[in-house]
Simulated scan of single mutants.
Amino acid sequence: MRLGSTMPNFYANTTHGPIQFYDWLGDAWCVLFSHPADFTPVCTSELSRIAEKAYEFTRRGVRLLGHSCDSLEDHKAWVKDIRSYSSRIPVEFPYPIIADERRELAVRLDMIDESDIYNPEAALTVRALYIIGPDRKVKMAMFYPNSTGRSVDEILRVVDSLQLVNKVKVVTPVDWKMGDEVMVEPDVPQAALPKLFPRGVETIKMPSGMAYVRTTSDYLHSSECWDGLLM
């Protein structure tokens, strides 16, 4: 599942009932993430935080979909523990979790450690996460070791960046977050800047003399940019 790959359609049983992925996704964005196992501490903290922040994903037009190789019965029992772990989770658990006991989907989506892929006793899913666009293409792939919990704020930051650059000819620099300056795409010709960014672009001088670092805050004033962002 490399960047730009098409996420395959699949059928799955989930805690919200059976789904066909393409029908379930519609024209939304999706964060599809796996966890190693139910009833484990780091996974409980992760799924709890994602549930707490579910509204932040929803208002960005993003659907959440969890996954592991546990049974549907285990998922449903574990959700009660997750809810107990946090008092800030909505009354109805906000996203489905896929049950993949036969590990078929985990293998298909490259969510299992290579050394364990053919060992059903040890083949737990790693902390894999894909951000999928409305075109069903993989826009971001993230893999964490089982010992390390992911940052939900970082996932939201990447969603913001992906949705922004999908609408405006910019790229986002290191540690960028919504509201910060962005950089103009390198292939945008200088002559096009006044039309694309009428409020101005600053070109940073470099010893090389090449004008490739160009920054702007103009996207903050563009209604076209904000259309569909932070709905």
Rank of each mutant, 00 (worst) to 15 (best):
T40K: 00
F33P: 04
D116E: 07
A51C: 07
E114A: 12
P90Q: 03
T58V: 12
K76E: 15
V79K: 10
V79C: 11
P96N: 03
I112H: 03
D100Y: 08
T40F: 00
E92H: 07
S68Y: 02
R49I: 03
L72P: 07
D38F: 06
L109H: 03
V62M: 11
R49Q: 12
V42H: 06
A54F: 07
A77N: 13
A99I: 04
L109R: 00
H67V: 09
R108W: 14
V91T: 10
Y55R: 14
A77S: 12
P90L: 01
D38Y: 05
T44A: 03
R88Q: 12
C43D: 02
S115F: 07
V31S: 06
E56S: 07
R103Q: 15
I89P: 00
T58D: 12
K80P: 09
R59T: 11
D74A: 08
I112W: 04
E101G: 08
G61K: 05
L47P: 00
E52W: 04
R59W: 09
I97S: 08
S68Q: 02
G66K: 01
S45N: 06
S45Q: 10
L72F: 13
F39Q: 01
K76T: 09
H75P: 11
I89E: 03
L109N: 03
L105Y: 05
R59M: 13
D74G: 05
S34Y: 01
E73H: 07
R102Y: 13
L109K: 01
A99W: 09
S87W: 01
E56W: 11
L32D: 09
K80M: 13
R60N: 10
D110H: 10
T58G: 08
P90G: 01
R63F: 09
V91W: 00
E46F: 01
P94T: 05
G66R: 01
E73L: 13
A54E: 12
M111T: 02
R83D: 08
A37S: 13
P41I: 02
V31D: 10
H75S: 05
D38N: 02
L64M: 10
E73F: 12
R60V: 07
I112Q: 02
V62P: 07
E101I: 15
L65I: 05
I112P: 09
E104S: 13
R49H: 06
H75V: 01
C69F: 04
E73D: 14
Y55C: 12
S48R: 01
W78S: 00
L64W: 10
I97K: 06
R102E: 15
S45Y: 04
T40N: 02
F33K: 02
R102D: 15
D74N: 10
Y85G: 00
Y55S: 15
R49A: 05
D100N: 06
R59K: 14
P36M: 03
L72C: 08
A99H: 06
R83N: 12
K53S: 13
F93T: 05
T58P: 04
V62H: 06
V31G: 07
V79M: 15
E73T: 13
Y95H: 04
Y95S: 04
F93K: 00
H67M: 13
D113H: 06
L105F: 06
Y55F: 12
V42G: 06
